[in-house]
Design a protein around this nucleic acid. Structure first.
Lengths: 252, 252
DNA sequence: CGTGCATTTGACCACCTTCAATAAAGGTGG
DNA sequence: CCACCTTTATTGAAGGTGGTCAAATGCACG
């Protein structure tokens, strides 16, 4: 709809363009097997998921689905990072979440997707038809339970984010963000201890925190001058004083 | 914890103080029977819920549960309005949601409640032990399904709220809020057509929209001067130009 | 090595906040 | 029922945080 000109890469037209690549991976070999909702399933049960799922390989900055598109699929991330976002008619954007391996999107929809999903890095994605996965919830109650659990946790995270967006200062926002990224992305990507890997651009961070890129940049500089972080090579920062960062993040 | 001095009214000490009143209502007579998660249950199934639930009557401004308290119960609202909120250590508050009859809270918790819940009006509340209601999800799969559905919808709403908090102006925020309250509260409370009933204070609205009470008040005055709304008796406003309000809310 | 995009930095400005005073509404006791 | 007090809401003036606009710098990639 809004992003009409940007081509979707994973849905129905998959394989029909060169931008996405079908890869034949069975669920048993799936890298996200033990961090995704499938972690509650036995090997025998996972194989029934295999039957309804397809895997794709995507490049950075590709659109997986657009806000408003008919929501036919649920997607699980195997590798890489994806951003979920919503837009206002005049182009203002709010990034709802950054997703990492094991996380899924496309569940919380009415008819259409409520968010656009775009790749930030190279991404391997697993795609399941929503109607069929809903049937699996009944067939495999543990799966339904697990999805409810994950959704509850997501709801908690989104409540924390509301607190951040509504009540924290720019500096507090950035510190909170860095700490949450450290928790979220580090166990998966292999980042040296004390470092944070930030695959997304300043502009993405800004739209996630309800700020502008200039403010993000300035706050990075300030944190750097205060020796709380140090800006290493692009997309990596080093935490120098984590205690002080936590203090600022929880807003002392 | 934070609100240590404010007495909880519904949990374990229920009946032991004069601030909450136990009322013996069976689920079959429950006013929220057909708007709550129980709406998917047959009468015979609802009676098994009766066995694990208790009902209470609360006055305005009473604390039901505090952020951080051990989360033993799930609460469903039968009548009245409740606010869910989170606080920062220095007292800044974010209201996460206003809840109306049929809605529940206390699901999205780890060990402790992630939000405080306080009554805004007189409230009738139904209380169920979380462990037991989780068992019901397995026993009555439709109930688990329904709760997942509701939680998905809540997640969508919280994503809309993130867009509002992160990217909308004060005026846009207030218009969006008024329209959502009109949708949410009017079907339940009996409000004349074209009117909105706002049980909450300006301060509550401010903390919901990430603004101050002064800004809320000023924006009300502006909308009033622009003949988009008219401020009637306290807690009621009249919508004069709904089209223009929708235009502002969706940010043309 | 040059082109194009992302990021940083600076100067100025606006929206919203803060502080303060006033007005209105609500609750209590005589 | 009204006076009194408390709480809540409105309005005004001044200030600050973050936004806007513009330019410079850095970095990736052909």
């Amino acid at each position: 709809m809004i992003l009409g000109k940007q081509q979707r890469c994973a849905p129905d037209d998959v394989g029909s363009n060169s931008s996405s690549e079908l890869c034949a991976t069975s669920c048993n070999q799936c890298i996200a097997r033990h961090v995704s909702m499938c972690s509650v399933l036995k090997d025998s049960e996972v194989s029934t998921i295999s039957e309804i799922s397809k895997c794709f390989s995507l490049h950075p900055k590709q659109l997986v689905c657009a806000e408003g598109d008919q929501a036919n699929y649920l997607f699980t991330i195997q590798t890489g990072c994806i951003r979920l976002s919503k837009m206002l008619s005049d182009g203002r954007r709010q990034i709802i979440d950054f997703l990492f391996p094991g996380e899924f999107f496309g569940l919380a929809c009415a008819n259409g997707y409520t968010c656009s999903a775009e790749t930030i890095t190279d991404v391997n994605l697993c795609r399941m038809p929503r109607t069929q996965i809903f049937e699996k919830f009944i067939e495999l109650p543990v799966l339904g339970q697990k999805v409810l659990d994950i959704t509850r946790t997501e709801l908690q995270a989104s409540q924390d984010q509301m607190l951040l967006l509504g009540r924290k200062s720019a500096k507090e926002k950035l510190c909170s963000f860095l700490l949450s990224m450290s928790d979220k992305s580090n166990p998966i990507s292999h980042v040296p201890d004390g470092f944070i890997y930030l695959p997304m651009s300043r502009s993405d961070i800004a739209d996630y925190l309800g700020l502008t890129i200039e403010t993000i940049s300035r706050q990075f500089t300030i944190l750097s001058k205060e020796k709380i972080i140090s800006l290493e090579e692009n997309h990596y920062i080093k935490i120098i004083d984590e205690d002080r960062m936590r203090l600022i993040a929880s807003c002392a």
